[in-house]
Design a binder for these strands. Structure first.
Lengths: 205, 205
DNA sequence: GATAAATATGAGCTATTGCTCGTATTTTGA
DNA sequence: TCAAAATACGAGCAATAGCTCATATTTATC
């Protein structure tokens, strides 16, 4: 994984084994969050599950919050990179195709590990003021903004408002689906596509 | 406030003064949540702010979670009652008017105390499995479901899916607006109305 | 092989905080 | 008026969990 997953590390891991340790910690944290929620999410439990001593954990993370922040940031980055890749891959294609490509990424991201996605989503709200996280969010915004600009559609509101709302609609429907335990990705995609397209004024379905 | 705000009370308040105590506790809890977030949200702080001893607090709430649950439930009930009232008041009116009446309630609820709304929203996700809360949610669903049924619109998806999505769209845009600190209720309403109407296939703005 | 730097360890400290319980005060009802 | 019930009080217990630090081990460097 990239170095961005370890923000504010107390010590920069330089040897290979320490990188493995950091990775094990983040993986363990994710598994606990996914399987037990916030109740079991303690630094001691994370260290134990990672097969690492609590001392080692605090050698690379200044506090518990930093672990969560790293987890959330890595997740946001993965999503953004997926969107970027989809955007690049569908360059030149008509807007509808490009939108579908982006939705596929978002939905795959949601459907992959729904329980984890839900927990990370909740933590993401709590850590919304983290500058590194905000930067990734802004990058995602920029991507969608550009997509809308190039779509040639006559937008119902200002570019910024439409960008914000498209995000809100997509994430809103996705999160709700996650909370309700929906598993049908195709249905989800069809509904989100319809919601976004009709909002933008493009011919839906 | 109604008795529904005190679920699972350790002791049912029967005298007037104890009702005041319970009310003071809930009010204090809301104020702390609104002003300091989860960091300052401790039972001792709540009791202190309420001008009540910690012992009194635990005479009416079995644990801290019950206070939060009562807060969230009261909020959800207030919203639902507002929707119900708006629905009743606009009986017989065309769908667009009725939708606007409902949106006014939602937006007023969001704009009234945005910081508190945001915190309650977060806790609401965490407590999503609370039966009493689920019941209120279901009541809200039923209201919107009926509204859609009576609209005469030919829905783009099944009634249930449309109900869920309308909720998700409205709350998604609202929450995002709250997080971004938006203060223009009119703009918000226009966008949400557009999003919902276009999703449903009714002629937007 | 020797020295230093990096990494790993985990017992236990510290601080917080949810919560209890014995007691005091107020209200009710007869 | 007085006993019983309801309410209020708050010092302090108990448990948890974040985190430190002195020490041990491994790796890199020369």
């Amino acid at each position: 994984m990239t170095s961005a997953e370890t923000p504010t590390p107390r010590k920069r891991p330089v040897q290979a084994r320490s990188a493995i340790t950091v990775d094990a910690i983040l993986t363990a944290a994710a598994h606990i969050l996914e399987g037990e929620g916030m109740e079991g999410y303690t630094t001691n439990a994370i260290a134990a599950r990672a097969g690492v001593s609590i001392g080692s954990l605090y050698q690379y993370f200044p506090n518990k919050e930093a672990i969560t922040a790293a987890l959330v940031l890595a997740d946001a980055e993965r999503l953004y990179e997926g969107l970027q890749a989809a955007s690049d891959a569908s360059a030149g294609a008509p807007f509808l195709s490009r939108l579908e490509a982006l939705l596929d990424v978002v939905i795959a991201h949601q459907m992959d590990r729904p329980a984890l996605a839900r927990m990370i989503d909740m933590e993401e709200r709590r850590l919304a003021h983290d500058p590194a996280l905000q930067a990734v969010h802004e990058a995602g915004f920029a991507l969608v903004r550009q997509e809308l600009q190039q779509s040639g559609l006559s937008l119902p509101f200002g570019l910024e408002a439409c960008t914000v709302d498209v995000f809100a609609i997509v994430l809103g429907i996705c999160d709700t689906a996650g909370e309700r335990g929906e598993t049908d990705g195709d249905s989800l995609k069809a509904r989100i596509r319809h919601a976004v397209l009709s909002y933008l004024g493009g011919r839906p379905s």
